[in-house]
Design a protein around this nucleic acid. Structure first.
Lengths: 149, 149
DNA sequence: GTAATTGCAAATTCTTTGCACGGTC
DNA sequence: GACCGTGCAAAGAATTTGCAATTAC
């Protein structure tokens, strides 16, 4: 799905929930689309949006991200460092992707494959918990840092 | 392992790293031990410790938790709500346990079993990532809330 | 037209830090 | 007596909120 389509789709989703697609929201979405692989904080998104559209306040970024999280267009995630990060939900992805956080260099890789199919089944059957989503992050050492040592 | 043993062991760990087991640290540990099943925030721990030992400051709680996290006696975790929570690491547990977060009632259950053995192997082999630890939380509906509906 | 949205600044919340004092070996 | 640890208050970082002005539909 390209950027224009993604924007259109999101606009529809916003309208269905009674929200408008303002220039600020559009710019925020564009930044998220252009940095899909990163895990930007609100502050970082604000910085990037400023470069596109001088007229935005940090509060608006927060408010936009709150709405997008509510509509499940983005996922809010924290890597235990005290900053919330926002990740665009992949089109068609049933579940949130996984992360590999390198303890040496701090880099975060993504894993798209759903590795939790079997585990979710166990959780549903054995623990009687109806799974809607998940957060899975591995802490360890990435390949680059392994080679460095 | 009972409370006295756990305290003794932690005392040893602290000493090995050049820290002392002060009354404040002991009280903090006791609170953590007594509330193993909960996922207390620093503020909550402070509140409980105050009931035991009037003389403690919130800053000390934070400082103690920082040390305990460093020594891997507790795990710091965030459930994306902007507050850090602290979980005592289970004795003998190779890995951090998993969580089931109910989106309806907010309750958090723990799963002790390590469900990620196979998944970790895939991550190590296929993604060349050396796994040291993980964070796995399922979002969904707990049994009690399913019955309510 | 009008209800939603915005920017700004102030307020809040969570966490860390500086520093003088107190306790320990 | 050196050093670690503490409480307190102040600082700092991240996020939210109140409000008057503005804008999208």
């Amino acid at each position: 799905m390209n950027t224009v389509e993604a924007l259109k789709k999101t606009k529809k989703q916003l309208h269905e929930s009674g929200f408008k697609l303002t220039p600020q929201r559009e710019a925020t979405l564009l930044v998220l689309l252009e940095n899909e692989k990163d895990h930007l904080s609100a502050e970082e998104i604000y910085f990037f949006v400023k470069q596109k559209n001088a007229d935005i306040g940090l509060a608006t970024v927060y408010r936009t991200l709150e709405i997008l999280t509510e509509l499940k267009i983005v996922d809010k995630i924290s890597f235990d460092d005290g900053v919330a990060r926002y990740d665009l939900r992949k089109e068609g992805a049933k579940h949130f992707h996984h992360h590999l956080l390198c303890l040496e260099c701090g880099n975060i890789e993504e894993i798209e494959e759903d590795l939790l199919g079997d585990v979710e089944e166990i959780v549903e059957k054995q623990f009687h918990f109806q799974v809607k989503d998940h957060r899975l992050t591995f802490h360890g050492v990435c390949q680059a840092c392994q080679l460095k040592e």
